[in-house]
Design a protein around this nucleic acid. Structure first.
Length: 407
RNA sequence: GGUGGGAUUCCCGAGUGGCUAAAGGGAACAGACUGUAAAUCUGUCGGCUCCGCCUUCGAUGGUUCGAAUCCAUCUCCCACCA
């Protein structure tokens, strides 16, 4: 099976401009394609990961990726899929985020002049001359068409600023620039980028009379139709300092039944035969599939060792109930104790298990807290320094484990 | 520039002088049931020194025994017209 067919089988391709030509191009390893990453945060998240995997797969098939950091487009902010204006970032933040992205991507994609390159659109966007751009590029865009694009349509009700309207033009210009300077003949991106990508293709056609290609990957949506990779606390980050390997593992381990196979297919590098075999699984057997998914992804994003750790922590916590050194922990210092003890409520807040004492009190009153496997039934319970020196295991609700200790 | 409309607790959204820490829904959190799933049911859902007290309804000042609700000024949004 060739790469294009594989991508289709994995459900990764959403839309393509010219199916036949693109198939040939990527199957023969003749594509130089780019994917843009706008530096919206100081870490990549799961959504980016889908794109990175695709990049990797295409690279392994002999195509050349161009990683585009959106240091310039970050100044504008993509309105696609948004109901409100993105908050404007300072140049310092953008720079910092770009640096973070760079570090993470480098670990995943082999960068080498022949195999893949990384560029930053700040290098060409920031120096554009307004009037010149209007004449050279702006004249090729039809406002009527732009407003018909899905990404803007949604914003017509809530309001769309001129700044955001220009995002499409900037992204189109990127493609045009890369086409000329790096022989980049294809653009890849999330399905929500489709109209922006067509804009670039159209610009290349109008200005150079040349054909170029675009294809989008399926957005990772759950069975309820909302974007995956989000938790109550925010995104699931790839940065281990923002989302620990254990949390990362748990996110996938706790995924809906309906979404497991789809995720395995899309995100892991397991052979399709094996995945098809797994798709016959039902009911509680899916737990096994979830473990595989969680393990494989943790391995890809962090390392095999971290994945093993996460898996064994998960097992010892949920199956055998034993303690484990991998759970998040908080060190309590001596001066936080009063008369050699600390109140449970204070302790919970200290460990960031709850954001306020009221909340901590409620959890205890509802029977949701246990320490060293003994349910806490009084909000007045105090923990001694002796216990803390040994280290205590706090469990809030069913799945939140935390360790508190004192040296 | 003109004319209207709006800003309420994490989000949506009621509330138009006291009975309002503020309906309803969503999210979230805890409990039951389970497969570390979903669905369902129950409870909670501003803070604290928690049977009581304190701070919230865009901002500031005022009227009143008493205001999210009335008045004034300001800030920001939106719609229609230009």
């Amino acid at each position: 099976m060739k790469i294009y067919e594989e991508l289709i089988s994995r459900g990764l391709i959403a839309q393509v401009t010219d199916e036949k030509e693109i198939r040939e191009l990527v199957n023969d390893g003749n594509a130089t394609f780019y994917i843009g990453f706008d530096p919206t945060a100081d870490s990549l998240h799961v959504g980016h990961f889908v794109a990175l995997c695709l990049m990797k797969r295409l690279q392994m098939a002999g195509n050349k990726p161009v990683v585009l950091l959106g240091g310039g487009t970050g100044y504008i902010g993509d309105p696609s899929g948004r109901t409100d204006l993105r908050s404007m970032m300072t140049p310092e933040t953008i720079q910092h985020n770009c640096d973070c992205f760079k570090n993470q991507i480098e670990k995943f994609i082999e960068l080498d002049e022949d195999k893949a390159i990384m560029v930053n659109n700040i290098d060409w966007l920031l120096d554009l001359n307004y009037v010149e751009l209007l004449r050279e590029v702006g004249s090729h865009f039809s406002i009527n068409n732009m407003l018909r694009a899905e990404c803007y349509k949604q914003r017509m009700e809530k309001g769309l600023s001129f700044l955001e309207l220009n995002y499409m033009i900037m992204q189109s210009f990127d493609f045009y620039h890369l086409f000329i300077n790096h022989g980049c003949n294809m653009q890849f991106g999330g399905d929500d980028q489709w109209s922006n990508m067509l804009g670039g293709r159209e610009l290349i056609r109008r200005k150079l009379g040349k054909n170029s290609y675009a294809m989008t990957n399926t957005l990772l949506m759950n069975s309820e139709g909302s974007k995956m990779g989000k938790t109550a606390k925010g995104a699931v980050w790839l940065d281990p300092n923002k989302t620990s390997p254990f949390e990362f593992y748990q996110y996938w381990r706790n995924i809906n039944d309906a979404d497991v196979l789809k995720c395995i297919r899309m995100l892991t590098f397991l052979p399709l035969d094996q995945i098809n075999e797994m798709s016959k699984w039902e009911g509680s057997q899916l737990n096994e599939a979830k473990e595989i998914l969680a393990f494989e992804l943790t391995k890809l994003v962090h390392s095999e060792e971290k994945a093993k750790d996460a898996k064994s922590s998960s097992h010892s916590l949920f199956i055998t109930g034993t303690d484990d050194s991998n759970m998040p922990s908080t060190e309590i210092s001596k001066n936080q104790l009063v008369h050699g003890v600390i109140n449970v409520i204070e302790l919970m807040v200290e460990c960031k298990l709850t954001t306020s004492k009221s909340e901590a009190r409620r959890v205890i009153q509802q029977g949701g807290l246990s320490i060293n496997d003994i349910k806490v039934d009084s909000v007045d319970l105090c923990i001694s320094s002796l216990a803390l020196e040994k280290g205590i295991k706090i469990r809030k609700g069913k799945k939140k484990y935390h360790k508190a200790f004192m040296i």
